[in-house]
Nucleic acid binder design. Structure first.
Lengths: 203, 203, 203, 203
DNA sequence: CATGAATGAGAATTCATTCAT
DNA sequence: GATGAATGAATTCTCATTCAT
């Protein structure tokens, strides 16, 4: 009985397993520098065998990135639809982002490093689209925050947007899941720096 | 005589010119994805001809990165040796960094994207070394700042270090020299966010 | 009991069915360009499953071609043994050929396109042998026809042989069974052209 | 001086030389079955080296076929524009065709065997276009011939067209330039058979 | 200094085939 | 009988690099 369950579950599992392996290798060495052979080696099979499961190396990144982005946007949309104030929205988005980094570190790292080149291909148009929604979400919240006097009026909002965006996502390049800080803890620290600064207040 | 002078002067100039071209292409497409042919095309010559000037593709990045780092450290060392307080040191380092981004945007972008894998090769050991000095300079200043109560005592200093470091350098990926903001202006804005936060203070 | 009968009968039927499918695909795309997977797809199974029925892709063409040639030679031998005059023999051979094209269009097309390279392998020696018998039958009949003054004395007989042979078999490349002309009708037209020419006679 | 001439001429010559080699191999083994390595071997170089001269295997056949068709149509257009009667037009077209077979045997053989598959790709649309012009030229001439009572009224003209077309071009599969018959001689014999038939006339 | 031509070591991908289930 | 997964050899193509001219 258990066997049946396992078998039933194992159909998509093999795929997922291989994609996780691929994501790890892509993240470590970069998409271009990663050979299909290396992925296969890591997965314990021959290069050609990967093609039973995937059409191409490209379709592997594709599936990795789109799966990640789907999940990311589920989280983001929940936050954005929750009717929070600007500061709380930023806090929630940052926290959600670190949770995603925790869950999909490899995918995030790939997204960081490769999305620019990949987005040039029609197949990856959704990367550009995601980028756009991203900007809209963060920039909009910042602008609302300035309007509602939650954020400083003297900020260059576009600069602040880039600052926030990069600050959060670059973390994927050094973050190691299972380390001493939980994603929530890191988010709290980041938010503290971003919102209140690192300088002691001159009161 | 003039000719000799011109010739003498133009030899390194040609080199520099080609390196600038190469840096631009490396920055735009990534080191691996950049073919020697593409660099040559951009420079208006054939791929093989580049080998009159350089030993290899690798030696091109090498020269690009080491030239950049040499200049960077000249600036950093001046700042670090000036006997400034922690906050002023951070301000000066950030400003200096944005000036470097302004002057060597391509080199900085390459450094960002490629230094991790390149550093694995002995030839690029200086990248790791630079990284170390980097960390020492920033982390040390932050720690001094906490000790001297210039920076908040409740910070995770390592986290703050990464935060600062990434925040500054990632800018190379979107910065365009000759835009509306001078590097000093951008530095001022960044520092304002980093030091005082983006939130309105509750006075 | 009935089941056994059906099963007994359906074993070779399934084989035939699969061979027909394979022949169709081979004819449409060429032997080399046809993947086992494509045959299997067309037959509604997976590539590996074909290997329950056949040893190899090669053995599929083999069976297709040899089955066809067996039947062809049965017809030819009947004609050649019937004691007809040269003109009548040619007429009968041409008619028989068009009937074969009608019945085994795919096999004929494969034979046309692939027999040359296949014949290089020992396994397909019978193709060369068939070729030889072919030449003997047609060339012999033509020579007999010239001797008996049924055919023009001024012909280059070898040329005429190739002319006839090609003329007939190439038809397999455009012939569609079930079209407006019956094979006998097409044979009649071909024979009319071949025997009497297309020009109006100047009498 | 001679050297300069040779050098000046050798630029396109190398290309042509390689294309001739490629055409020969394609014709002998089929486009698909021909590996790039084999072409390179025959040309005395390594497979990769071919890519200095050509973009792809496909672009090699492309150039082979289009060069051939260009020349063919030059000849055909001259014939078609000469204002000849139907019979003379057919005679001239057939003769011209055998001359082309003599000059471009390999290209013709490739055209015969591969144009059907190749024509499916947009890049080879000109094959379909050529096919169309072809049909128009031959079929038109035949119809005119019937109307002007040069050709028999009881012919199925479409059948006669295919008959003529195949009859002529298939010759490329066995024709060897430099054999005992000149192309003009072969054309004469073919025309004699096609126009007047192989049977002795009942006077 | 630069070109044209080639090398040779991979790279991604394809495919006939095998085999345990 | 058929499936799913894998193998391994071959194929096209890429690219850094070399070198005679």
């Amino acid at each position: 009985m258990k066997k049946t369950q396992v078998a039933a579950a194992s159909v998509p599992d093999r795929r997922r397993e291989l994609l996780d392996t691929a994501a790890e290798v892509f993240a470590a060495h970069g998409y271009n520098a990663t050979t299909v052979r290396r992925i296969a080696d890591t997965a314990g099979m021959l290069a050609g065998s990967l093609y039973y499961h995937f059409d191409s190396k490209e379709s592997m990144v594709d599936e990795i990135l789109s799966t990640f982005l789907d999940e990311l946007w589920q989280g983001y949309d929940a936050v954005l639809g929750a009717g929070l104030g600007p500061r709380e929205t930023i806090e929630a988005l940052v926290t959600e982002s670190f949770r995603e980094i925790d869950r999909h570190r490899a995918a995030v790292a790939i997204y960081q490093k490769e999305s620019r080149h990949l987005a040039a291909q029609p197949r990856f148009a959704y990367l550009t689209e995601s980028q756009r929604k991203f900007e809209q979400a963060w920039l909009g919240t910042l602008q609302r925050g300035v309007a509602e006097k939650a954020f400083r009026a003297d900020l260059d909002v576009r600069l602040a947007y880039r600052f926030l965006r990069d600050t959060v996502w670059v973390a994927a390049s050094w973050y190691r899941p299972g380390g001493q800080h939980s994603p929530e803890e890191i988010a709290r620290q980041y938010l503290s720096m971003v919102l209140d600064g690192i300088a002691v207040r001159d009161t």
